[in-house]
């Protein structure tokens, strides 16, 4: 498989460059919307839709947007698509709209979307950017669902809202609350770094070093990880 083949662009988001577990982007929705599986899937797919559209448009405009004002331009494009998705969900899936609440609007400032715009879409062709959007979006969804699976099944004793016979008598309610979110996420990152040991690229070009808030947020974490 050549390094930049379309398939690898698509697949790398799933595990090796998983935005949540490896690149550590978009932590806020990861922790906030994973108390239920429905919320996790809704959040994942909404963000995926925004990511695909914004990646495509930013890639189309990559030669038009001047370097110095690119971040505000990206934010406006992303905010536009977020509004579209928000209105769509409000109209057709009102219960999901209630469930996600303010986090839906906050997709705008999700570092995954801005990060991919900056790291990938601004440098690659439209086709590859769309594939990258699909891969990263699915990786994000997959990560959210795997965290939500643990938190909902063991925390609430339910599966998609249906009660699980034995587990619902022994539920660990702590997991559905805020501290449980931090705990499960921490353990999942550790597990993924164990599984992908040596394979996951903690290099600068893949890290969040290009994100606008990198100098404080992601880069530090990445350098920490590289140091280990």
């Amino acid at each position: 498989m050549t390094k930049n083949s379309n398939m690898s662009v698509l697949l790398k988001g799933l595990l090796l460059e998983n935005p949540v577990f490896v690149l550590i982007l978009g932590t806020c929705p990861t922790l906030a919307t994973t108390t239920t599986l429905i919320g996790a899937i809704g959040m994942g797919l909404a963000a995926t839709a925004v990511l695909i559209c914004s990646n495509a448009v930013i890639s189309l405009l990559r030669k038009v947007i001047p370097e110095s004002v690119r971040i505000p331009c990206y934010i406006v494009i992303i905010a536009g698509f977020v509004t579209v998705v928000q209105m769509f969900i409000h109209a057709y899936l009102p219960t999901l709209y209630e469930l996600l609440g303010v986090y839906l609007a906050l997709i705008t400032v999700n570092c995954i979307i801005l990060g991919r715009a900056e790291m990938f879409a601004s440098k690659n062709s439209v086709g590859k950017s769309v594939l990258d959007g699909i891969g990263m979006g699915l990786g994000f969804t997959l990560a959210l669902v795997s965290i939500a699976l643990i938190r909902e099944v063991f925390g609430a004793g339910t599966f998609f809202g249906m009660e699980i016979p034995v587990l619902s008598n022994f539920k660990i309610e702590f997991l559905t609350k805020a501290p449980g979110g931090f705990l499960v996420y921490g353990i999942m990152i550790a597990a993924v770094s164990k599984i992908t040991k040596g394979k996951a690229p903690y290099k600068k070009e893949f890290s969040c070093a290009n994100c606008p808030s990198a100098s404080f947020c992601g880069k530090q974490n990445c350098e920490e990880r590289k140091g280990n």
Binding site: I24, K177, A178, P179, G180, G181, F182, L183, Y185, G186, I187, I189, A190, A191, S193, K194, K197, N221, E224, R225, N228
Partner: peptide, 23 residues
């Protein structure tokens, strides 16, 4: 700290305890 928990995972678990305190 165990090798794979170094860095961010340990930080998140610590955040979990602080959050528990705020409960």
């Amino acid at each position: 700290i165990p090798e794979s928990f170094k860095g961010l995972p340990a930080t998140l678990i610590a955040a979990s305890f602080v959050s528990l305190a705020f409960f």
